[in-house]
Design a protein around this nucleic acid. Structure first.
Lengths: 174, 174
DNA sequence: GTCGCTATTGCAACGAGCTGCGATAACGCG
DNA sequence: CGCGTTATCGCAGCTCGTTGCAATAGCGAC
């Protein structure tokens, strides 16, 4: 793993809106400052890592990736920064099947999660598919569903097929 | 808290092929043995505690209650026993809003959970209310929803009302 | 009763994540 | 450019839960 150029030494690769097209990361610094928050090297590192990530990442994965960039990285700082970024709307988090934190980079689209309790895979559940539920809950209880906190567990089609194939042979525990 | 009558003392209520009506705990010992598992004092303690519990309990709450009965209780044993009991279908667990484990004593009725991300209260979501979602997912994806792993987050009616009352004054973080 | 097999225990260490605290360093201002 | 304010850092320690391992103890068989 190539060491990154020491922060601040030498001209860093184009820091324009070039590759950041569609990436709000470029504006994070100003967004932080506008709130009286600060732009620190540690935060910059995490944001670099986030900008290179997509989809779901667990907190510890992010810690590891940061450590790859800067071995001096400390977990608490990463977690704290993640919470700050969440307040800015740049990431969101939910709890995976095992209760571990999963961060969601750039939650452009509001969606829930579907995960198979057998194969542990996860899918995104777009608002459309949950619409009936959210509408029903709003009407019946006045409850406003937050899709990012909607998590549905169960058996995916593949696993159901596999179990069916196994037939009644095994009352398998697992 | 009253000490429980020693197990096995006195005639236990009907224990037939009928229903484990109300007290499946009485049969736990035999169910364990039937599987080649063992009946130990530690397990008995946890089962006493469970029998005295209803609804949702977190793992650490159970550990505490066990420790109240027997200070020598060790967490790993409690957690391991809980997982064994889950395999027997006597408890089920899910992950709460904060990712912590919540155990569910005697999950007679299959249901999901609804929790408010603001006031942190939790409600049960009966199968009926989720039926539309589960049906839709089964048809569209062949996904079989496990209600005990269905968790819906959002704002409850009370909190929505409170927020509305606060008006546009606060762009509250929380 | 006691013997042996092995499930279970308790311990210690670990992993994820959070938190309080003193020290550091961003950043706005002059 | 230097100063003061205060957000942030790094550390140490804590909580919840899991895991590997050696020692213990259920329990079925003799």
């Amino acid at each position: 793993m190539p060491a990154w150029p020491p922060a601040g030494s030498g001209p860093s690769p184009v820091e324009g809106p070039s590759r950041l097209a569609g990436a709000p990361w470029a504006t994070v610094r100003d967004r932080l400052r506008a709130r009286g928050l600060r732009w620190t090297p540690q935060r910059r590192e995490l944001i670099d890592v986030l900008a290179a990530s997509t989809g779901h990442v667990t907190g510890s994965e992010l810690v590891e990736r940061c450590r790859a960039v800067d071995p001096a990285t400390v977990p608490s700082t990463v977690y704290r920064t993640l919470h700050v970024l969440e307040a800015l709307g740049l990431v969101s988090h939910s709890h995976g099947h095992d209760g571990r934190e999963e961060f969601h980079v750039l939650p452009e689209v509001d969606h829930g999660h579907l995960h198979c309790t057998r194969c542990r895979r996860t899918w995104e559940l777009p608002a459309g598919e949950a619409a009936l539920l959210t509408a029903a809950l709003r009407e019946a209880r006045g409850f406003a569903v937050d899709l990012s906190h909607l998590s549905v567990g169960g058996l995916c089609a593949d696993c159901r097929a596999q179990l069916a194939a196994l037939g009644s042979a095994g009352l398998a525990l697992e």
